[in-house]
Amino acid sequence: MNLKADEILLYLEEGHKSGTKDPLVITPYPDLNKLKDSGLAAIDLRLGTWFVTLRPARMPYIGIGDSGIQSQLSKTHYVPFGGAYYLHPRTFVLGITLQWLRLPKNLTAFVIGKSSWGRRGLIIATATGVHPGFMGCLTLELTNVGEIPIEIKPGMEICQIFIQEVHETGAACVESQFGGARKPMFGEVRLDDIAKKLGGGKLGQI
């Protein structure tokens, strides 16, 4: 069940008490007064300062298991507070949340765009799930599916995060390849054991 703003608030306040071992943290701290009276079931997250774009001319295609994608196929950009990034129609860029998040073992979250941006053609996030135990900034996949370039600025509200309680079993948290990072990351796409056994992804191989 989604937590409402006042419940999120309780978690955040608890997380700021010293001695809390497994807190929910969203920092920089959201505007608590705004949150308290909002009646919302989500918190707005802001856009960070780092962006990563693809350099299509550098590789013929993105292959499965290409570990060099971050360094060979991408270009990193930094936009300071006060600066702007222009997202042109049908372009794709990885952004990052300004906030650093920490989810305890008993909370999970999902990130979605804001409707006001969506109506202008800006699609914010596609991989929306955030697992219990995640720590770091969230990579955002930004695409302009509209017809007109869009200006985005670090520090602006870009997406929202819904938080849910999960039954805490004491099992280890999932290891995220994106955890503990301040810059957008591609991560790796790998074949798992079943996919490998099914032919290593090679078409027609029996």
Binding site: T27, P28, T49, F81, L98, W100, G133, M135, G136, C137, A172, C173, E175, G179, G180, A181, R182, K183
Partner: peptide, 23 residues
């Protein structure tokens, strides 16, 4: 869990994020 293997990289990012927040 799972945080010690990449400690130095995560600490760098954490501290730089802290500096950004401070600024």
């Amino acid at each position: 869990p799972n945080m010690t293997t990449d400690k130095n990289r995560i600490l760098r990012d954490l501290v730089l994020k802290n500096i950004e927040i401070f600024h």
